[in-house]
């Protein structure tokens, strides 16, 4: 307490750095966060929340367990790679708000066996950012 009173700006800086670190390593960075959930045992939904300044375009890639095939996707995926077990979307003209992609598999899937990656260029700097959707 004494330290934080004497060095309030240093304490706040450390807190911010810790917060930034947590955000960068989870499904949340630069106002972009993503979560993975299901509405049916054979579906996978990725929900991405975007706040200002939001990236204009996003790539969403979902990796499914071996042997699971995709029977449908909404919106239509840009590419389904059966060998890799991945599904890719290129979402254009995104803005602040929420965007969802959903896939239906040929069998029930466990979310813990799935991974979803979201890639975008950071508004302003143009740096490529990749985050993992949280379950």
């Amino acid at each position: 307490m004494k330290t934080s009173r004497r060095y309030p700006s240093a304490a706040a800086g450390c807190f911010l750095l810790a917060l930034l670190f947590l955000l960068a390593t989870s499904g949340h960075a630069d106002g972009v966060s993503a979560r993975l959930f299901q509405d049916q045992p054979n579906s996978v939904i990725v929900e991405i929340s975007l706040s200002r300044p939001a990236p204009s375009n996003l790539i969403v890639e979902v990796f499914l367990p071996r042997g699971v095939a995709v029977t449908a996707g909404q919106p239509k995926p840009a590419k389904i790679e059966r060998k890799k077990g991945s599904v890719r979307w290129l979402l254009k003209n995104t803005g602040p708000g929420t965007v969802q992609v959903r896939l239906v598999a040929n069998q029930a899937v466990r979310l813990s066996d799935c991974t979803a990656l979201i890639r975008y260029r950071q508004p302003g700097s143009g740096t490529l950012i990749e985050i993992t959707a949280q379950q």
């Binding site: 790539i59 290129l90 890639r119 490529l128």
Partner: peptide, 12 residues
């Protein structure tokens, strides 16, 4: 991915 995002970010 980075290259196509750059194209869409610039060109719409």
């Amino acid at each position: 991915d980075e290259e196509i995002l750059a194209v869409y970010d610039l060109a719409g």
